[in-house]
Structure formats: C-alpha cells, structure tokens
Design a protein around this nucleic acid. Structure first.
Lengths: 189, 189
DNA sequence: ATCTAAGTAAACAGATCGGTTTACTTATGA
DNA sequence: TCATAAGTAAACCGATCTGTTTACTTAGAT
C-alpha cells in the first residue's frame, strides 16, 4: 500500500474525528495535530473547513457503501439472503468499538439548513443505499420492490439509531426479524 | 397563563435553538440575544452552558412525553388502537415545519462520551418512551410485550430519522403499516 | 548540482467562544 | 419610604476558533 497523500491522510483523520466528536466540536487545530500536518498544507488542499467536511463525507460515502455491499454480497447467495444479510452486516458494524452512529445522520443533526451542501451529500448517501436495497428487492422478485426497500431502509435506520443511543447492537437482530417477515411475505419463494 | 420566569424562558429559547442548530453551534451570546436576557441573569440561573443543556433536555423530556402520550390517548380508545396511533402522532410531529429530528438523538451525536450526562439524559428519555410503549403492549395483552415494545420503538426511531434526513414525513405511514402487522400478530384480538 | 514544488513550525489576525465583573436600573414587600 | 433582590447593558477576560502569512526545510526531477 503506497503512503497516502496529505490530502487522503487529512480526509481519513477528518472522518475519524468527525465521527467520534462531531463537526463543530472538532477544531482545525486539533485535527491538524492528530494528522501531523501543518495548517498551511491543509489550507492549500482545502479552501475551508467546510470543504474538508464535504471531502470527508464524500470519501466516507464511497468507502462505506463499497464495504457494505461487499460484506452483504459475501454473506448471502440469493438476493433474498442478501436482503437479510444487510442486518447481519449492520450488527458487526454496531459492535465496532469505533461505532458512533451514522456519519450522515450526525451531519444532518448539526447542519439543518434545508439547502446545505452537507445535507445534500447526506441525503444522496441515503438515496444510494436505498437504490442498492431496491435493486436487491427487484432481483429477489419482490411484489413491490419500492415498498420493500422503503421498509428495509427504515428498519436499518431504526437499528442504527437504537444501537447508537441505547447502546444496543442487538437492535440489528430485532430489525432482521421484522425484515425477514416482510421479505418472506413480499417474495413468493 | 402567567408570564414565564427568566429560567423557564431561557430553557424554552434553548430548546428552540438547540433543536434547530445543535448544541455546539448555538453560542451563549446568540441564545441570550434571542431570549432577550442578560448574560449575568443567565449565569445566576445556570452554572454553565452545559447545565443549561441539561435543563433544556430535562424540560423537553417532560413536555414531549406528556404531549406525546396525551395525543396517543386521544387518538385511540383500545390499547391496540393506541399502539397504532403512535405513528399517527409521529406523522403530525414530522410535518411541523420546526421538526429537526429528535433532540436526544441529535444530542448524542454531538456528545458521544460514554459517561456524558447528556448521553444519560437522552438514554433515559428513550427508556421512558419504551416503558410507555411496553405498558400499552401489556394492556393490549400482547404475547411478548417486551418484544413488541422493542419492535415498535425501533420502527419509531427509523421513521424519525427517515423523516429528518430524507425529508419524508410519510415514513411514519411506512412504519405504521409494519407496526400494524406486528401488533396484529402479537395481539390475538 | 540546482531549481522547484511541497512541506514544516510558528507567529499573527480578527472573530467568537464561555464566563466574570462593574455600574446602573427597576420592581417589590415590609 | 426605603432596603433588597433581580434585572440590564456593556466592558472585560483568557481561550479557542477559522484562516493567513512569514521564514525556513526538505524531496525530486532535470
């Protein structure tokens, strides 16, 4: 693995700190000290803190979805199994000791302005996740793939927040059980 | 209605601003200007900003749950109907133009330290909401009231976050439909 | 070898942060 | 009526915020 560029390294550090401590609470100085990068270097890679936030969210968007999809594909053979595997993948995510909820939900809770680019990126992420679930639902020949995707995504959000707030990773299993019923009744296997 | 005390007024203002803009992003100066209260007065009612946050969360905890329960009681006669009404009440909440998600979820996303009092208050709120749903589930003679409460609370969280992030208040209806199936199969009516 | 691009450390700037203090004003109850 | 409690406005404090600048150091390619 080649040594990451300053840019990549800053983004990685930003993701870590924004996830754990939030966006406003993470100061540039602290971030730079953690990354071991000088201020000047950062500001010639990013125009502002906001731009670094955008970059971090976009990077995390790509990496997270990629990892998530790979894990789901590896955990189930049929589309139906993959739909269910979503919740198993979620559970291992929740059990990571660096789990602090969904970075995008957290972002929106700090930036509520309706036209904020941060909001847009976060909504986009959720939309792309929904698209993935929708595709799986179609592959599984679900009666109403849109409806099933809505339902499973809502269950996933519920599990994420429950795991985050109430420190109960087993929320994933609760969601999975409900999901199984919905999948079974939507997919005549 | 008597004129509210400075303390109450500050807490009300704090709730409004913390909900919309978050905790770190809401500065004391801005809050005081909005409330029309001097700094000295605030600091002889609250030792610090953190204490004001605690007070705001505790106040909101009481008011929100009270309003929520009243709305649910008014929207359904039987315990079973009340369980379903949870999602109708949620939907009207989501459609409020001052809806910015759940204040406690948002709080935890900014204060992730495991022993933070802010975290404790937020978890407590979720626990009390769970207790209420659990009581309704018992009244409805559900097979496994604990399980049903877990499920319905998870659905509610999912609806809240979906409404917040994706700006879809209709997430409440999605959750309600799933909830109805779970209630029906748990309650032999 | 040397020029250049990219890095560092650190001082600096102006704004804002949470919080304290001072001096003055208002209300209220004995 | 007058003491007291509670309020305001505003100056002030040190720390921290985002962002800029200066002066110096490296690393690489020609």
């Amino acid at each position: 693995m080649p040594r990451p560029s300053r840019r990549e390294h800053l983004i990685e550090t930003a993701i870590t700190l924004f996830c754990e401590h939030g966006y406003h609470a993470t100061g540039i100085d602290r971030l730079l000290e953690t990354a071991g990068v000088s201020k000047k270097t950062m500001y010639q890679h990013f125009r502002s803190k906001e731009e670094l936030i955008y970059a971090a969210l976009r990077q995390y968007d790509g990496v997270f979805r990629n990892n998530f999809m790979k894990a789901v594909e590896g955990a189930g053979k049929t589309p139906k199994e993959k739909l269910l595997a979503i919740f198993d993948v979620a559970e291992t995510w929740f059990n990571d000791n660096k789990f602090f909820g969904c970075m995008f939900i957290n972002a929106i809770s700090e930036y509520s302005e309706k036209d904020s680019p941060i909001r847009d990126i976060s909504r986009q992420f959720k939309q792309l996740m929904w698209n993935y679930v929708f595709d799986l639902a179609k592959e599984a020949n679900a009666n109403e793939p849109k409806k099933l995707a809505n339902e499973l995504c809502l269950l996933l959000e519920g599990a994420i927040v429950t795991a985050q707030v109430s420190q109960k990773p087993e929320a994933a299993a609760t969601a999975k059980e409900i999901g199984k019923k919905l999948i079974d009744s939507a997919v005549s296997s």
